[in-house]
């Protein structure tokens, strides 16, 4: 019996398209409390492939200043997990892209991990990225639970991750593997270094069973297309948050940004 019993939208996307996957991260409840759903709708219309929604946390260890500031703002706006699930209640009527929730363990624990999984399934979440949930802890405590609610747990790898550990992560992954492009917290950096390229090459040569997406430091067409030549796609976070922050017309700004990142305006 396969434990993963629901059809996951992430797999569906990869079945249709294996390259240049664009996953976009933004923080729930930011810039305004009730922007969460409409940003997802605009992203879908603009041509993003995955939607990654950040659950704001007071102490986001793995995030850089841009994302932390957006979390602080969202919390200030009154964002909470409970409210997020209310906002997402009908999201599947207007958004069909894979939806990934990203956040930290403490708020999830206080919500109740099973309760959280149940809510995720109800609103149509496909996967979770919980950077402070280590693999061993996941395997021991949460794997069965997540799988019983059809949720993929997305693992991160870094340039420092050993080959043996990458193999292990690949074995336990579903959906995709999140390649942190440098040993780095989130935050838009302008270019990709030689060292990072060597790392991308090394991972590509490993021929993992799961697709890989490169995250952290992707900000524009150049970095996105460069990353896409090494992996199945890439994840944009901080650069998109900046767009949201500076926008006075979300729909227009999002469409423009996604179009330019995908290079549609370069042709």
């Amino acid at each position: 019996m396969s434990v993963v019993n629901t059809y996951n939208r992430i797999d569906q996307v990869f079945e249709e398209k294996e390259e240049s996957i664009l996953s976009v991260y933004y923080t729930a409840g930011f810039p305004a409390l009730n922007d969460t759903v409409r940003i997802a709708e605009y992203l879908e219309k603009a041509g993003a492939d995955f939607i990654e929604i950040g659950m704001p946390f007071s102490d986001p260890l793995a995030d850089g200043p841009t994302i932390q500031d957006s979390s602080t703002q969202a919390l200030h706006n009154g964002m909470s997990l409970k409210l997020l699930f209310e906002q997402l209640r009908d999201v599947r009527q207007s958004v069909s892209l894979p939806m990934i929730l990203m956040g930290y363990m403490n708020p999830v624990m206080q919500f109740g991990v099973e309760n959280f999984c149940q809510h995720c399934q109800q609103v149509g979440v496909d996967a979770l990225i919980l950077p402070d949930l280590p693999m061993q802890e996941y395997l021991n405590e949460y794997k069965e639970l997540f799988e019983s609610y059809g949720l993929y747990n997305i693992f991160l790898i870094t340039p420092q991750t050993s080959e043996a550990r990458i193999r292990l992560i690949d074995e336990h992954s579903h959906g995709f593997i999140y390649m942190v492009s440098s040993a780095s917290i989130t935050g838009a950096k302008s270019n990709i270094t030689e060292e990072q390229l060597a790392y991308f090459d090394r991972i590509r040569a490993m021929k993992l069973k799961n697709p890989t997406l490169i995250g952290f430091g992707i900000s524009n067409y150049e970095t996105f297309s460069h990353a896409c030549s090494y992996a199945n796609g890439a994840i944009i976070g901080s650069a998109f948050i900046k767009v949201l922050q500076e926008s006075n017309d979300l729909e227009k700004s999002i469409t423009q940004f996604i179009t330019s990142v995908k290079g549609a305006d370069h042709r």
Partner: peptide, 20 residues
């Protein structure tokens, strides 16, 4: 209440939503 702070599962002061 029990939760996670600075990568350790321990007692910590937090809101009902798990914000420290």
């Amino acid at each position: 209440k029990i939760g996670i702070i600075h990568s350790s599962k321990t007692l910590l002061m937090q809101t009902d939503d798990g914000q420290i």
